[in-house]
């Protein structure tokens, strides 16, 4: 494939991904990040120079030293390894984000769960507040999740 075409595809993916992230909506944030991950994987892949080679899987051993076909015979495996790592980490981040959106929905009692624009640590909260956790397993699931966000009850 021509480099130019790939560059155009990356441009579009990155541009639309960024625009979606800026849309201040949780689901669009997830979608945008997905597009950007693809874009960056393709950028890394383009470092191979986009020359077709053989799949970097060698014949099974025993392999003889004098049959070595030269490294140029194979597609460059290093970007493959890097992108493999990137894909898996991207998946971890996406899964975390999805759980976060679900949690926002729960904590905000289903309202405005998608608003992600202003997301800063509570200004008035004492530092100690973040150090103590509460076990909710022992409580009924319906114990007013909205109340926890405001601290109005208990």
């Amino acid at each position: 494939m021509s480099v130019l075409l790939l560059a155009l595809l990356v441009t579009l993916l990155l541009g639309s991904g960024t625009y979606l992230i800026l849309r201040q909506h949780a689901m669009k944030l997830i979608l945008g990040l997905g597009l950007i991950s693809h874009a960056f994987n393709l950028i890394i892949f383009s470092a191979t120079g986009l020359t077709a080679g053989t799949v970097p899987i060698l014949p099974l051993p025993p392999r003889k030293a004098d049959e070595w076909p030269g490294a140029g015979h194979f597609a460059d495996p290093l970007p493959h390894a890097l992108i493999l790592t990137a894909i898996v980490i991207g998946f971890g981040v996406t899964a975390y984000l999805i759980a976060l959106v679900q949690r926002l929905h729960e904590v905000r009692d289903g309202t405005a769960y998608h608003e992600v624009e202003h997301f800063s640590p509570g200004r008035s909260g004492e530092p100690d507040d973040y150090m103590y956790l509460e076990d909710t397993l022992s409580e009924p699931r319906s114990a007013a999740p909205g109340a926890d966000a405001t601290g109005a009850t208990r």
Partner: peptide, 21 residues
């Protein structure tokens, strides 16, 4: 991945920060 897994688990399942106590 392990950290993300722990994060997902704690978000979905058990704990809830209790602010201002």
């Amino acid at each position: 991945i392990a950290i993300a897994g722990i994060g997902v688990y704690s978000l979905v399942r058990a704990y809830r920060f209790r602010p201002r106590r």
